[in-house]
Amino acid sequence: MSELIEKYEANPIAKVSLSDVTEHFKGKAVSKLGDTGNVSVVNLSDMTETDIDYDHLKKIDAEQDSVSRYLLEDGDVLIASKGTVKKVAVFHEQDRATIASANITVLRPTADISGTYIKLFLESELGQELLETTNTGKNVMNLNTKKIVSIQIPKLQPLKQAFLIQRYEQGLKDYKRKITRANQEWQHIRDDVAKNLF
């Protein structure tokens, strides 16, 4: 066990198991993904560092009954449970019915714990180490769902959660704006250089 986890476990702050504040389920095994269909599917590759790439989700045709128990809701936390990279994302409601693929564990907050707060904790250095303790895979990551929901997170007051989330989201917005601007400036320079090459 790492020093960071030992320190955290010895810390007397109030903690709560994810199993006590969320419902959880695995995504659905799907085949024949395409560009058309009535249900969108979030795959591991759609989970980016900061969000979910909703614009490029693949789709399937499915009866509503066959996917009803897998339908994602606003605020659900998606954890990549297989693959090579630990990823965590929060789902935001879409116009189309959306499910997660089988390589993803879904946590649905049931208490006064925000999905975004769970994501922020699991993405922290401590959260990443705690997720690593749930890994039962050898060469490829395989996070055990029972172990994931046994992870204890600090029981923060809703007001403090809201403050941290607001700070994070404002910072993310600024970060995205600066990246867009930097890309535009870089493109402008490349175009300018290209024009003057001959």
Rank of each mutant, 00 (worst) to 15 (best):
M1K: 01
A89M: 06
L130W: 09
E63Q: 11
A194N: 05
G37L: 02
E129G: 01
L33F: 09
I153P: 07
I13S: 01
T105M: 06
M1H: 02
A97N: 10
S19D: 13
T133I: 10
E3K: 15
D65M: 00
I189Y: 15
D95T: 00
G171C: 04
N38E: 11
S124V: 04
E123N: 15
A194D: 05
T145W: 04
E93R: 08
W186N: 11
K119H: 12
A97Q: 11
D174S: 08
H92L: 06
I99Q: 03
L4Q: 14
K59A: 08
A194R: 09
E73C: 01
Q157K: 09
R69H: 01
I13H: 06
E23V: 12
L4A: 14
K15C: 06
R108I: 04
S2C: 02
T105S: 09
T36G: 00
N11M: 15
I189E: 11
G75K: 02
S101L: 12
R96G: 01
Y8Q: 10
N135T: 00
I113W: 10
K178C: 09
K59P: 07
L122Q: 06
R96Y: 06
I148P: 06
E93Q: 11
V21W: 14
L33A: 09
D192E: 12
N38A: 09
D65K: 01
R190W: 11
K160I: 15
H24R: 11
S150D: 14
V193N: 01
T180N: 06
E73W: 01
Q187D: 12
S2I: 05
Q184M: 10
A80I: 08
L120R: 02
L159V: 12
W186R: 11
D192G: 10
F91A: 00
L126N: 14
V77F: 00
K59R: 13
Y117L: 04
P12S: 04
D53N: 08
S150C: 11
V85Y: 10
A100M: 02
P158S: 00
P154D: 02
L18A: 08
T136Q: 08
G115S: 04
D192N: 13
I153A: 08
V149S: 08
K178W: 07
D192R: 13
N196F: 01
S2T: 07
M141H: 07
P109R: 05
N139Q: 14
E169C: 04
Y117K: 07
L57Q: 05
Q161C: 02
T145M: 08
V67Q: 09
T136L: 07
K28A: 10
T48W: 12
V42F: 09
A89P: 03
L159A: 13
K195A: 09
V149P: 12
